[in-house]
């Protein structure tokens, strides 16, 4: 490694987990460990950490809480949750509050863990090369917002948000129309349920994460399945997950945060966008995502041009 080594901080209340992870990764990275989340936060304030991997259930503080605080202290640090519990609330909190890059489960697969950290390290290395310089002039740009939800409540909130921010609202009735819009127009924000006109939207979200890493997706849905959410986090890199019935305040905050992020990214060179989704594991879903990627050809051409 030529540049400064990537620094990874592991946080877990079980020391043996920390020792095991340290031994696994000490050759590739500079590994730091903390069993107390408070000390981990202290450390983030004083040292550069590229990747933070945290357990969820710890006596002093939950992992979601730690990651949310870490985001305030060091927004550039990539955050990963590593937990033995599949807990929907924790996953939602870690995503919405902690903006996690991945949700990993214990026991972990050695290869997968190594792969995920390698991906995170790649992003971190790019960020080191091109530090963020937000230019104020671009921070109030008009955005294109695509809505994939028939729910009038969602429309009301998104409509108000677009009017207030001077953004352009694009509405479609089915996935075919959505593909058309995505190919024709630069879309910045996507607000979507998991079902549109009876069709599953998740494969499209996963394809978009591959084709268009700068697109920010807010999922608003009455479905709450932990496993499905984990896949949306890891494979579609969604920005927010908001359960229906919609809580207006929370939704508005999410839209606002997404708009700010989108405007910040506009001000940056393309390569620093800190997103890199995992490919779906399941064969059939991978095929579906692949064929959707084919249908998004014009979008990809535009982005690579």
């Amino acid at each position: 490694m030529t540049a400064a080594p990537i620094r990874i901080l592991f946080v877990d209340d079980e020391e043996r987990i920390l020792r095991s992870l340290a031994l696994q990764f000490r050759r590739q990275y500079e590994v730091l460990t903390e069993s107390d989340p408070h000390r981990a936060l202290q450390r983030l304030k004083s040292e550069a950490v590229h990747i933070l991997v945290s357990d969820q259930r710890m006596p002093q503080m939950s992992g979601a809480e730690l990651l949310a605080q870490a985001r305030e202290i060091a927004p550039q640090t990539l955050r990963i949750l590593l937990t033995g519990y599949s807990d929907l609330d924790a996953a939602v909190a870690a995503l919405n509050g902690g903006g996690i890059f991945r949700y990993l489960t214990k026991p972990w697969d050695q290869q997968e863990m190594a792969f995920t950290l390698r991906q995170a390290a790649q992003i971190a290395a790019r960020q080191v090369q091109a530090p963020v310089v937000p230019s104020a002039s671009l921070l109030a740009a008009q955005l294109n917002v695509l809505l994939l939800d028939e729910d009038p409540q969602t429309l009301a909130v998104v409509g108000d948000f677009c009017v207030a921010g001077g953004h352009r609202l694009l509405r479609v009735n089915n996935l075919g129309e959505a593909l058309g819009v995505l190919n024709e127009l630069p879309v910045d924000l996507l607000v979507s349920d998991l079902k549109l006109a009876g069709e599953e939207v998740a494969p499209l979200l996963k394809s978009l994460a591959q084709a268009h890493p700068r697109l920010l997706t807010l999922v608003v849905t009455p479905f709450c399945d932990t496993q499905a959410l984990l896949k949306l986090i890891n494979e579609a890199q969604i920005f927010r997950y908001l359960p229906k019935p919609i809580r207006r305040g929370l939704f508005e905050k999410g839209l606002q945060a997404a708009a700010e992020q989108a405007q910040l990214w506009r001000a940056q060179p393309t390569q620093v966008v800190s997103r890199l989704p995992e490919m779906p594991r399941e064969e059939r879903e991978r095929e579906k995502v692949g064929s959707l990627l084919g249908m998004l050809g014009r979008l990809r051409e535009r982005l690579t041009a």
């Binding site: 079980e14 043996r16 987990i17 020792r19 095991s20 992870l21 033995g84 519990y85 489960t105």
Partner: peptide, 12 residues
């Protein structure tokens, strides 16, 4: 779930 923690490091 509780088993997952020791399983995690034992396996690794």
């Amino acid at each position: 779930h509780e088993l997952n923690t020791p399983l995690g490091y034992v396996k690794n």
